[in-house]
Every structure is written in structure tokens, then in C-alpha cells.
Design a protein around this nucleic acid. Structure first.
Lengths: 214, 214
DNA sequence: GCCAAATATTGAACGTGTTCAACAAAAGAA
DNA sequence: TTCTTTTGTTGAACACGTTCAATATTTGGC
């Protein structure tokens, strides 16, 4: 339903606008992937899309927003892939590392774009566009839900606050991304290994064995 | 010795160069603190320092480098303050939070500059100037040393890798900085609280109580 | 003191992201 | 239809970071 709704929604004018938006997005994606973020200019995107420079800017707040919008499709695909391939029976540690691996491999395939998207995401947390905000929210909900499920399964002590734990794990994930994407040639395996080691540190603290003597 | 050495070292020309560098740095610091990072232009710094634009660029790779060089003094002062006020008897958790509080309070005092310095630091890890590289190295050494000391005191289990633990704590520290500085009005107390909660999660895993059943 | 090599300094020029007043085209009212 | 209002589109203009060929100054050898 949302397909038809989006395609034929509103007046002629609105549809036209959505179409130019789409054209711009496709041009942007093509150029970003070919040239990388830095070497892609707004002018080039505009020319490639066959519109004026101002049109691009009227559809997207700035270059970084254009990037995040252009990668939205990829992102949803990744989420779907994670949802489809995550073993439902596994413990949360395995699930986390599985999901992370999928993302890291994508990052390694598009280092320049990922780097800049990460930068945009991390440094606009409170001023960010709706796309990134939604992504952040989604990650939080999925993460916390998974942790609570694990908690009910007895993998996590009852006194552990799942929101805090998600924050901690998410923080480590971001940190690994920063370090990994800072490398000239990001190595997903190395990134997974790094995330694994710090996760294990946290896991032991979250595991049911009660640290009763201080 | 290093004082005199630096002040009277080399030829007349080298001293002259160091002096213009110093003048530029002071101008930059003044303008950065008054206007914030975004509203301070290189041209303005050059004019304020009474030199040409090219001179500024010949002394500093780019605007971000100028910022980090301008804040170097503050940074060293902070490190000294941390060294002077950290209770040597306290456990490492208390020491970490104490140091973090000092830094967070500084960040809150200069949100714009801190934000941009953090960005520069995190996204140039492999291409960064000598200052930031040295800072990173110093943080690592101090952190790992403190952790090993705590390990010998029995606060940390022997099987925990202090390098990994430092990585984890440092990652959480950076994450708290990102989140905290993303806020319109960074609140150091809130940041400390956040770091405290995630640190506690890690601490329990690192504490001697052996989680012997998986 | 004089000259050539070395180098610090300079600002005009360039490329790029972003803005904005003007324009064109559709929507809605008459 | 015709007029007014609304709004998507446009590219010239602007501001800023950055570059670089030209200039000014110092150095070191004679």
C-alpha cells in the first residue's frame, strides 16, 4: 500500500517534486560511489541529474544530508539482511557480532562514504535530519529489545539495566567504526575482532555470576 | 632547559618564524574563543595577527590543525590539573571519573571548540598531526599503566587484558563526549553520570569475582 | 661588502558549499 | 478562461578554506 500511496500521492506538482528528488538521489548515489564523498561536488550532481544547483539544495539541507539520503536504500537493505540472517536461537553476543559483521563489511566496501556518513551521524545527533534520527531510534529499540530478551533467557543478570548496556555496546560499536574507518583500508575482520574483545569484557560483567565480594 | 633552548634556539630567522607562529596562535585562540570555531575565518585570524593569509597556512596544515595547536596549551594545563588533583590512593574507577570530570567541565566551557577538536581528533586518527597523535599515545600509556597498577592491587582480575580494557573505557569516554557535546548545552555532570553507568558495567566484568559458569 | 641559494611571507586566484532574489509553472478562486 | 497566490526551480553571487607563483628577507660562502 505504501508503494502506490507514495507514487500517486498528492497533486501533480507534488509528484513532480518527488520525481526530481528521486533523480537527484540517483545521480548523487552514482557519483558518490564512483568518486567518493570528497571529490563529488554538488554542481556535478546537479549537472548529472539535469537540474540546477539550487534545486539540489532546496531538496537537501546540505551535502551531508544528500549523502545520508542517498545511502538510505543501502541502509534498509542492510537492516533487512541482518533481520533475515541472524540466528534467532543464538545468544545476544553472537547476534550482535553477526549484525556488526554485516555492517562492517559494507563499510569496508565503501570506506569514503561510510566515513563521512558516520561523521555526519555522530556530530549531528541533536541537529540531525529525520533519516539519521530514525535510524538511531531504531537501533536503540532493536538493541534494547534484544537485550531484554536475552535477560529473560538468563544470559544477563536481572540487576543490569538494558538501556545502559545498550548504550555501552552501541558506544563500543561506534568507537570500533571510528577506529576501523580511520584506517586507510578498513578491515572488517579486524573490526569484528576488536568489537568482540571489548564486548567480551562487558559480557562477563553482565553475566549471571554475581560479583558479591565488591 | 627546554625553555631557553626553545626561545634562543637556531638562527635569527628560525626564531622570527617561531615568533610569528606564536602570534598567529594567540590571535587564533582569541578569535576561536570569542566567536567559536565556525564563525572564525582564517582571514580574520591573519588580519588579527597582522600577517598574510598564506602565512597562516604555511604554519598550519589547515584550520583544524590551527585549532588543535591553539588549544594545546589548555590541554597541557588540563593534564597537569588531572595529575595534581587525582587521589593516588583511590581505585581506578574513581580516578577515571575524576579525570573525566575535569575534561568534561572544560568541554562544557568551550562547547564549539571542543566539538570541533573532537571531530578532528576522531576522524584523522591515521592522518593526524603530531599534536593529536602524541595526545592519543599519552592517553593510552597513562591509561594502560593505571589499569595495570590497579590490576596489581587486585582491583582487576589477572586474566583481563589491560590494553583491551583501556580500549573499552576510552571508547566509552569518546562516546560520552560525542553524545554530550552533541547537546546544545553540554552538561558535565550528566556526562559524568553517563560515563559512570557504563564504566560500572565494565567494572563488574573486570572485578576479581570469577564468572566460572560460562 | 656582495652575490647566490634558501626560505619565510604574501595576497590574488581557485574550487566548493551555500544563499537568495528572480523566474516559471501549477493551484485555486473568480 | 483569467487572475492571484503559492511554490518548485534556477544560476549568479557570496563566503570561506586552500593553493601557489611571485616577492622579500635572511643565510652562508667568497
Amino acid at each position: 500500500m505504501s508503494d502506490d500511496q507514495q507514487a500517486t500521492h498528492g497533486t501533480w506538482r507534488e509528484r513532480q517534486k518527488q520525481q526530481t528528488r528521486q533523480i537527484i538521489l540517483e545521480a548523487a548515489k552514482e557519483l558518490f560511489e564512483t568518486l567518493g564523498y570528497g571529490k563529488t561536488t554538488i554542481r556535478a550532481v546537479a549537472k548529472y541529474a539535469g537540474v540546477g544547483v539550487g534545486t539540489v539544495m532546496s531538496h537537501f539541507k546540505d551535502k551531508a544530508s544528500l549523502l545520508s539520503a542517498a545511502l538510505m536504500g543501502d541502509w534498509e537493505q542492510l537492516l533487512a539482511q541482518v533481520a533475515a540472517t541472524t540466528p534467532p536461537e543464538a545468544d545476544y553476543r553472537t547476534q550482535l557480532l553477526h549484525a556488526a559483521k554485516i555492517f562492517f563489511e559494507y563499510y569496508a566496501r565503501r570506506p569514503s562514504l561510510s566515513r563521512n556518513l558516520l561523521k555526519e551521524a555522530l556530530f549531528s545527533l541533536e541537529v540531525q535530519g529525520p533519516e539519521l534520527r530514525a535510524m538511531d531510534q531504531a537501533a536503540r529499540e532493536i538493541g534494547v529489545r534484544a537485550l531484554r530478551a536475552a535477560q529473560e533467557r538468563g544470559e544477563i543478570r536481572a540487576d543490569v539495566d538494558c538501556e545502559v548496556m545498550h548504550l555501552a555496546l552501541f558506544g563500543e560499536y561506534c568507537f570500533v567504526c571510528i577506529i576501523g574507518l580511520g584506517q586507510p583500508k578498513p578491515d572488517p575482520d579486524q573490526m569484528v575482532a576488536m568489537l568482540e574483545s571489548v564486548t567480551d569484557l562487558i559480557v562477563r560483567g553482565a553475566s549471571p555470576a554475581p560479583p558479591d565480594q565488591r
